[in-house]
């Protein structure tokens, strides 16, 4: 997994609550059997004026000039600023794959949906929940200042604004550790293979019907 230590990134604001995973990456793109290449279809229905389908040449499609990520000042953004309950809906990991492929490394919002939260961390994307008022203020600052950047320091759990203000954020210690070190959690879990096997044999003895051969 990609490491995340510190990022000074351009911020793009997506002013909309309850952004669901169907909106982040529409289902027609889930037919892919690969993990990469979803970036051109991130927010497909908002970004383009036509209907998207797999295998298109995205550079030939009509862009929606109203959509925030199409505005020149947000090109190259790495931090997405969003509203509450970001990532609700399906379990598709294609959502963080698309954000990652597009170039986002962090998302700041008042709250995130649970499955999306897990999926993002597993793909090296840092999700930062901040108070609603703080997010509102960051929206105003981003919109008021072209080229607005935020400095995100994961080790210290701080978002640092250009004026030097430090905003602390919460992140669960295990996820933080994995992100800082870029650890693969399957490898970590397999280190506990002995404990798993032991649990399994106790579990099997207690409830043998759970192990009926399928």
């Amino acid at each position: 997994m990609k490491k995340f230590e510190r990022l000074q990134g351009l911020v793009a604001p997506l002013d909309r609550a309850n952004v669901d995973t169907d909106l982040i990456i529409p289902k027609q793109f889930l037919k892919s059997i690969k993990r990469t290449g979803f970036g051109p279809n991130l927010f497909d229905e908002l970004r383009y004026l036509d209907e998207g389908y797999p295998g298109q040449d995205a550079s030939q499609r009509p862009l929606n000039p109203e959509f925030v990520l199409n505005r020149p000042r947000y090109q190259g953004a790495e931090v997405l600023l969003a509203r509450r309950n970001f990532g609700c809906g399906s379990s598709r990991e294609h959502a963080p794959w698309a954000l990652d492929d597009f170039g986002f490394r962090a998302v700041i919002a008042p709250s995130f949906a649970d499955i999306f939260y897990n999926n993002s961390f597993k793909n090296g994307i840092l999700l930062i929940p901040l108070a609603e008022e703080t997010v509102e203020r960051l929206f105003q600052e981003t919109e008021a200042n072209e080229g607005y950047r935020l400095d995100i320091d994961l080790a210290k759990q701080r978002v640092i604004t250009s004026s030097g203000e430090e905003i602390p954020f919460d992140v669960d210690p295990f996820r933080k550790h994995c992100l800082l070190e870029g650890l693969d959690d399957i490898g970590l879990t397999l280190e506990q293979g002995g404990a798993i096997a032991e649990f399994e044999s106790r579990h099997r003895a207690a409830q043998p019907w759970l192990f009926r051969d399928v």
Partner: peptide, 21 residues
């Protein structure tokens, strides 16, 4: 019972476990 992402599908296949809170 709950939904998981693809990385977790791989994790469950490989380890029969899930990291959860």
């Amino acid at each position: 019972s709950h939904g998981i992402g693809t990385s977790e599908v791989e994790h469950v296949l490989a380890t029969q476990c899930l990291i959860a809170q």
